[in-house]
Nucleic acid binder design. Structure first.
Lengths: 240, 240
DNA sequence: CAACAAGCTGCGGGTTTACGCAAGACGGCG
DNA sequence: CGCCGTCTTGCGTAAACCCGCAGCTTGTTG
């Protein structure tokens, strides 16, 4: 059995290496990659079926890498090991995991025990292991209660990218008015409004910009999500 | 000699601990804090004059902590040890360092040697040590060439927060038109424009939102900067 | 099948933005 | 002092945005 580790930070990498050795005596080879690009390549070359992957990496982040890896070999088992449980990451991951694939999401703050357990569960037992904290987000986001639907999230990303209503309409195949409707829903859910309640104009917000900021502060968006969205946008722009 | 380490990640923390021991034999006590809040407290209690500090921490980030520490004891020597060299961090740090204080900024990707050297230079020789990569940013940002002036940066933050032109005018004591002027400067420098060059409307951007995104992608802004700005805004709003 | 909720769309109008034009205000310099 | 560049401000306009009102198309349910 071989395990591939994809992780930026040398300290974390060697920690993972040890953890894998300790948790999986049946593992005879451990390979290391220090960023997503190398990770993809090694996964391909070695046909790795067991991967531990960091999410936040400089060169090519974990979500991107995982997507292409899963595209080529959907039965690959991947354990995401991340510092954060931003909703943006969670959403990003659950959008790319293939049906029935075994995967895991464990926070770096988890104990050694927890990590080892997750390693065994996923790689040996083919079970999904999702950190409790992450799980909470996932359900809130999928169950519509208080969560954001895909269309709401989509339009959030679009205004975050700085598109006009018209451009969004064209991109998503909607009318102008529909775009604005969705925006309204979004503002509503994010609880942004003009603060115009007072007698004279006071601390007014530009709803569009404010929505993006609030989403950021709530970790609904983060750098990595923006980066991906921007790449998709460019792709779309090129394809006219 | 005492050294205080303020760092989120247990692995990095113990690595730092060792590095300090190795680099500074004259150091007899090493104290550790796992977030900014605790860091501030320990700095106060121990009157620490030598601190190594991570920037990105969950509870209270390094910049906030450093600011209050320096406010109470400006001669404190602080070495910032960070994963990133985002312009937002660099700008944030250089805005709070007191005149003539010895401080340092070293990236986590630097070699052991470099880190040890920086520790000695700052704590023993009272010299500033700024990572070359960071240095580059700093100069570009302070020297006006291609960099952003304070007023440009300020208005960038304001629209990122989602304020309207009017609100910005009030907050900064300017006329509406002046705010819009500065916005124009900003758009210019960020190189955002309507893409209206074509015959019919195509990939139009909402300049205001686009500017924020571009700034994010260029690391001119990041989560921590937003968080701080938001806190300041709330403060201002409360003070009417 | 009728009834209903949810989403799409057009119309219309009040606000906010983006930005050209031009008239002061201020500081440095020969 | 007079010239000049930078910054501020007002006026005015076209476009974009926010959003209420109302007619339509759907999928769902009793």
């Amino acid at each position: 059995m071989k395990v591939l580790i994809v992780e930026d930070d040398p300290l974390h990498r060697s920690y993972l290496h040890e953890a894998v050795n300790a948790a999986l005596p049946e593992c005879d080879t451990v390979i290391e990659a220090e960023n997503g690009t190398v990770g993809e390549k090694l996964a391909r070359d070695h046909k790795s079926a067991h991967i531990v992957m960091d999410l936040q990496m400089a060169s090519r982040n974990g979500i991107e890498a995982a997507r292409t890896i899963w595209k080529e070999r959907p039965e690959t088992r991947i354990l995401f090991w991340s510092n954060y449980s931003d909703e943006a990451y969670v959403r990003g991951v659950s959008r790319i995991v293939p049906d029935g694939a075994a995967y895991g999401y464990v926070l770096k703050s988890a104990s050694d025990e927890r990590l080892k357990l997750a390693l065994r569960s996923i790689f040996i037992e083919s079970q999904c292991v999702i950190d409790r904290e992450v799980r909470g987000l996932q359900q809130k986001s999928l169950g519509q209660t208080n969560g954001f639907t895909d269309s709401e999230y989509e339009i959030l990303v679009d205004i975050a990218l700085g598109l006009t209503d018209r451009a969004i309409a064209k991109r998503r195949g909607l009318s102008l008015r529909s775009v604005q409707n969705r925006l309204q829903q979004l503002y509503d859910k994010l609880d942004v409004y003009q603060t115009a309640g007072d007698d004279h104009e006071d601390g007014r917000f530009n709803l569009r910009a404010r929505a993006v900021t609030v989403a950021f502060l709530r970790k609904l968006l983060n750098y990595s999500a923006l980066e991906r969205a921007e790449a998709e946008l460019q792709e779309w722009l090129d394809g006219k």
